[in-house]
Structures are given as structure tokens and as C-alpha cells.
Design a protein around this nucleic acid. Structure first.
Lengths: 110, 110
DNA sequence: TTCCCATATTGCAATATTAGAATATGATGA
DNA sequence: TCATCATATTCTAATATTGCAATATGGGAA
């Protein structure tokens, strides 16, 4: 079917899955890494940096934006993209939370 | 095309993207949450827990296994699935690392 | 052995994703 | 105004993903 079933899962699970899915692509992950490291964040630089055509990158950017992982500020002709800390913190918290649960119990498989 | 371009990205980026992609599905994320919380981890319980048919869950389990997020121990007729801490730590470290970089610089977008 | 039980695999059909060419938009500068 | 630059959108073909029915596998019990 290709369609992802979301009924029966909690709202948070579905939301987090969408965010993680957005991160689960080399180009989008690279964009996040680049934005985290780079002092500046103009769209054009990302296009220069990645081995993909401009329209493809534009689409990936909009996908990251859709799930709230990045935000863009229009700056004249350019658009300055940055990591949306609020969105990223959602991921961070989720991972920390699951890690905490894991640590508090021992695995039943060896 | 539907094919994800991986040339031009680092090995680690591609690997991490695969892992995050595996997490980026409500059923698979739920499985991870369930395995983290549950004291036991028999496959059948997961099938009972999730609103999906057994073959579908089996596929999701094998996908999680493929990227190293879980492992399974055969236990008589049953299979006992657990989170593979090594694999999970990869995610944890990645997130912590990016968070660290983020904290050490201020966003250029407001 | 034969019959269950638990899990995996196969084989679809439906839908989603991906990449890039072509094109559109929208701002700035001449 | 018109040309140019930066980015977004649209379109299309190729491929991937998803879900489930049907079936296979493989272990234990009778």
C-alpha cells in the first residue's frame, strides 16, 4: 500500500516518527549537520555543499521545515536557514527519555 | 526516481540516516518504545500490542534488526527481541554530538 | 510421524519518495 | 522598466515503502 498507518499509535509517536523520518535521509541529515556547524546558513551555500541539484535541496529544506526542524529567515534575495532549536529539542528529549528508560532496566537478551 | 542518492555523503552520515529512517515510522518507533519499557520482549506480545498484522510487524522487526537497533534471541518457539544497546548508543551519541555543537554557537536566525 | 504454534517470507496492489529539468516567483540593481 | 540572481514549484519517470493475504518454516507436543 505504501501508506503508513497512523491510527492506533499515539499522537506523540506519530509526530516523532515524522521528525525522525525527515532526519532519515542523507541529504537532510547533512543539511542539519551543516546548519549546526556553519556560522552562516544561506541556502545557496547548502546547494554548493551538497551533491544534489538546487530543486532537490529546496524540497529537502521544505521537508525539514515542515516538521519543524529548521526555520528560514528571508534576508534580501537570500534565505537564511537555521536549526529550529525547539524542534531539535524534541528529538533530543525523546532520545534522552528512551535512553533513561533503557538504563533503568537490564536487557533480557544477552 | 525514488532512489536515495548516497554518493557524496560520508559513510557515517549515510549510516546514521538509515538508522534514523528505520526509527521514522510509527510502528517501528512503537516497537522501540515497547522494548525499552517492557520487562519481557517476546515477538507475539508486540503483535498483540500494535494495530498491525503479524507479517507487517515481522517486516518492521527485521528492518530494525537490519540497521542494528534491535536483536533477537531464539527462545524455544518464541523469539525474544531486545534493543541493541550498541545500535541505540549510536543514535544517542549522534544526537548528543549535534546538540553540543548547537549549544556552542548562537543561531544566526532569530 | 503429525498436528499446532510462533514467526518469517513471498507476492501483490496501492501509495509515497526521490531526483532533476523546466519553469515560476520575487527581490535587487541598473 | 528590464535583467539578473536566489529560491521555490511543478512535472514526470523511476524506484521504494507499506500492509496484508497466503504461504512457508521450524520447533515442541502428542
Amino acid at each position: 500500500m505504501g501508506i503508513t498507518k497512523t491510527e492506533g499509535f499515539s499522537e506523540e509517536t506519530n509526530k516523532m516518527a515524522e521528525v525522525l523520518k525527515a532526519l532519515g535521509h542523507p541529504a537532510r541529515l547533512s543539511i542539519m549537520e551543516y546548519l549546526a556547524k556553519s556560522p552562516s546558513c544561506v541556502c545557496g551555500e547548502i546547494v554548493d555543499e551538497l551533491p544534489l541539484a538546487q530543486p532537490t535541496i529546496s524540497r529537502h529544506l521544505s521537508e525539514l521545515k515542515k516538521v519543524g526542524l529548521i526555520k528560514g529567515n528571508i534576508d534580501g534575495k537570500n534565505i537564511c536557514y537555521c536549526i529550529n532549536e525547539e524542534g531539535w529539542n524534541g528529538v533530543k528529549d525523546f532520545v534522552a527519555n528512551l535512553s533513561g528508560i533503557l538504563e533503568s532496566k537490564n536487557s533480557c537478551c544477552k
